[in-house]
Amino acid sequence: MLLVAALCLAAVEDPALAEQIAESGDTMLPRLISGDFQAIDLDADNAAMSWERVVARLSDYARSPGVAPHAFDVLLTQAEDLWSEVLESGEMARPRIRDGESGPWDAAEVPVSATVERLDYGVLKVPRLEGVRIHPLNAGGHTVGVVLSLGDHAFSLQAFRAPAGPIWGEVRPKVIQDVRNRGGTAEDAESSFGCEVCAQIPVIKDGRQVLQPTRIVGCDGPGWLLRGAYGGPSALADVVDPRAHHLFTQAVVDLSAAANQVDAPQEITALEIRWPATE
């Protein structure tokens, strides 16, 4: 994020660089410069400027004629100050979930962005992101969700039938107590995911128990709850990983694809997904 802030400042100082970015079709920098911090999120076309392009453009700027050798160091210092101001403003933590522009969506709703390519797992439709590996989440002999590998982080998604209406507010205290009972720590929080649980969950790693930072998120939809757990070293960072936010808020829940529709129980139940034979 610091590099993105540095590129914003460089584009403000160098009109030629700003023009080059505009001509390339990249939309993130112009939006950020105008104060639209939601541009950091991936959009429907996964069109946030790639980190490789950010680094490349900063390198081009540093090598530009007339740019002093120490200019890049000054730029990073200014970018750090700018990013601190952004974080203190609270804009990056403002909930952006089921607000008309972001989901997660119900299959019957409009708009469900058709430009987002999704992998069909029956009840759960998951956005496709390049470089993200997807594995089945199994429980009790059934496949009940997906686990998405994001480098040294993992993000699990699971859908539940919730016929009695919104339940995330009731579920969170139970999640917190469960984590504490297992020897971890957990507390209510809020981010761009909305109301969530920030936890340190005991896991076994390399033969010993450690506490893994984990962000547990949830969202109520019509008759369902979508729950996610994002774990890894930076899971509790001040700014949510835009990949995780995109995967969660562009997911689609389709209760019509659930098994046993006639005998569907009225209590909260985990929904089994359809795992493709080719996966």
Rank of each mutant, 00 (worst) to 15 (best):
R172G: 02
N260L: 14
G232K: 04
G223M: 04
C8Q: 12
D41A: 05
D26H: 09
V147C: 10
D36G: 03
E109L: 01
A48Q: 06
S192W: 00
S156Q: 12
G151I: 06
A259P: 06
F72D: 10
R53F: 11
V253Q: 08
K125F: 09
L17W: 06
A68H: 10
Q209L: 07
T269S: 11
G169S: 12
A257P: 04
L32I: 07
G145C: 10
L17P: 00
V175N: 05
V55Q: 12
K205E: 15
P173M: 10
R57Q: 15
H246E: 11
R208P: 00
P136K: 01
N181W: 07
P163G: 12
T143E: 07
D241I: 08
G231M: 11
A79I: 01
Q158M: 15
G231P: 00
Q250I: 09
E19W: 06
G66C: 10
G103S: 02
E117S: 12
A6Y: 00
L247D: 15
V203A: 04
S89V: 00
R182F: 07
S149R: 13
D106L: 05
C195E: 09
G35C: 01
S59I: 11
G231W: 06
L271Q: 05
Q209T: 13
V175I: 15
G165K: 04
A93Y: 03
N138T: 15
V147Y: 09
E170M: 11
A18L: 12
Q78D: 13
H135P: 01
A270G: 12
V217D: 00
V217G: 05
I201M: 11
V55N: 11
D263K: 00
I273L: 05
M28V: 12
A62S: 15
G223W: 04
